[in-house]
């Protein structure tokens, strides 16, 4: 039996009928076509499916879509786009924080949440904030460097929705 749910995703209200077995990850990718959020392990270990739900990061593969009823969700698509990068995305590009790129959406969402809570994080805070996100290319040093850069960029250029133009 389908259940009616309402969710605000990246500022847009969505009303859908879903099966209770559908995960939030499946809902975002298959119902809303927001495929920026990735499925890695599917059991909460890799963090590539990370989204912000009601102000907190969650593994969208571990949340049922019905449990996100009446929630406010931010996915990677809510932070910037190809032409207007968010300062965190810009920092990842500048510092080479992206290798294969599969972990990047989840990493950036975790970092966005960190910088909301702690605009100038220590390295320890950065490592803790991304501890639930695995980079299988093992590019952690550059990711941490990119987060430091993002904190600086964000301070000097606070993001204008939906993001800033990529500087050359």
């Amino acid at each position: 039996m389908k259940i009616s749910i309402t969710m605000v995703v990246n500022g847009i209200i969505h009303k859908k009928e879903v099966l209770p077995t559908l995960t939030l990850l499946e809902f975002l990718r298959e119902e809303l076509y927001l495929t920026g959020t990735k499925e890695g392990c599917g059991k909460g270990e890799c963090g590539t499916c990370t989204v912000i739900m009601d102000g907190k990061t969650v593994n969208s593969c571990l949340v049922l879509a019905v449990q996100a009823n009446e929630s406010v969700i931010t996915t990677i698509e809510g932070l910037g786009d190809t032409h207007h990068l968010h300062p965190i995305q810009e920092a990842f590009v500048r510092e080479g924080g992206v290798q294969c790129g599969f972990c990047t959406p989840g990493m950036i969402v975790s970092v966005a949440h960190l910088l909301e809570k702690s605009p100038q994080p220590t390295d320890e805070e950065i490592r803790e904030a991304i501890s639930g996100n695995i980079c299988r290319c093992t590019g952690y040093s550059k990711i941490v460097k990119a987060v430091r850069k993002a904190a600086k960029l964000k301070q000097s250029n606070p993001p204008v929705t939906p993001g800033r133009k990529l500087s050359k």
Partner: peptide, 9 residues
């Protein structure tokens, strides 16, 4: 416990 994401749930 687990990870920041899991600790939130």
């Amino acid at each position: 416990f687990a990870s920041p994401q899991i600790r939130n749930r």
